[in-house]
């Protein structure tokens, strides 16, 4: 155990000294890593914007079920409770005939013709309705079909899903595609960034291949040779994480207002500040893992001496 501690301490010390003495190579590797973490961080921020924009669009979509005049209120409420139990349904609100009339009136107070013609009528011409919001836009069809084929269908006058079906389906397709593209782009760009880092570290270690051979020839074990390189890789990652989180401060501050203007929020700068430690942790773990894995893979081939 004590022997292991001595080895670990020596590896950390040597890694730090090598990082310092390799000067330019270390700076170059760290810069490339900063670039990679910056890309990964940017993807993180774009995903936040994309997700919030998409869910805002999604919330604009709902369907309404209009009931026949003869449907009693308790019947409608039993439909409501049946709907609430469907896993696809996120929220159901009941709008009674009177409420519908109230809303209609407030919406058209400026229009004298409409208010006058309403006054002429004895009965309330508007229908009671249920406003349904699904968890996912793709599920409206299921909900509409459920209502249409259930015992409640005789109470129902119309479901506006069937009028808006094309628009909802198209929107639902768009949302799914946008999410897939966002996910795919994140994956591809992260992978490219990681490959660039891996190759840079490989190149850095390639320049030290003779040293690795010498270390082996004086009797060092593979682990003894590799450990300081792994420490160096971790250092590249840790320093790069600190540098990139600092770079994001002015950038998110600058882009914050624009993010609200174009995407309707959240303000990127507020997001950066309130999630500072989570973002830093992601960059730090990614950086250190990337450095450690790249270094251990890259040293492997020169350890065959």
């Amino acid at each position: 155990m004590r022997f292991m501690n001595v080895q670990l301490r020596r590896a950390i010390k040597e890694g730090i000294i090598n990082f310092w003495r390799n000067g330019l190579v270390s700076v170059a590797a760290t810069l490339v890593m900063v670039l990679a973490l910056f890309v990964i961080g940017s993807l993180l921020f774009s995903n936040v914007l994309l997700t919030s924009a998409l869910s805002r669009i999604e919330e604009e979509v709902d369907i309404s079920v209009y009931f026949k005049k003869e449907a009693a209120e308790d019947e409608i409420l039993s439909v409501k409770s049946a709907l609430s139990q469907l896993p696809q349904v996120k929220a159901v609100t009941y709008v009674s005939e009177d409420e519908a009339l109230e809303r209609f009136k407030t919406r058209h107070t400026a229009n004298a013709l409409i208010t006058q013609s309403l006054d002429e009528l004895d009965d309330n011409p508007l229908q009671a309705s249920l406003n349904i919001r699904a968890g996912d836009t793709g599920q409206y069809e299921v909900i509409a079909r459920f209502l249409d084929s259930s015992a409640y269908s005789k109470l129902i006058d119309k479901i506006n899903y069937f009028q808006n079906q094309v628009v909802i389906e198209r929107l639902s397709g768009f949302l799914a595609a946008a999410r897939a593209v966002g996910f795919g782009a994140t994956l591809v760009f992260s992978l490219i960034a990681m490959l660039v880092v891996f190759n840079t570290i490989r190149l850095a270690i390639y320049t030290l291949r003779d040293e690795i051979a010498v270390k082996r020839l004086v009797g060092a074990t593979s682990r003894h040779v590799r450990a300081p390189f792994v420490v160096e890789g971790a250092l590249y990652g840790a320093i790069s994480a600190v540098v990139s989180i600092i770079i994001f401060y002015p950038i998110t501050m600058w882009l914050g207002p624009a993010s609200v203007r174009f995407f309707g929020g959240p303000n990127l700068f507020d997001y950066y500040l309130s999630n500072f430690f989570e973002i830093f942790l992601i960059l730090f773990v990614m950086g250190v893992l990337l450095g450690v894995i790249s270094s251990s893979v890259a040293t492997r081939r020169y350890l065959r001496v």
Binding site: N18, K215, V218, G219, T221
Partner: peptide, 15 residues
């Protein structure tokens, strides 16, 4: 090359 004379010799011992 990145180790001093002392460190070069010490490395063999540490190994």
């Amino acid at each position: 090359p990145t180790k001093t004379a002392y460190e070069n010799i010490a490395f063999a011992m540490e190994a």
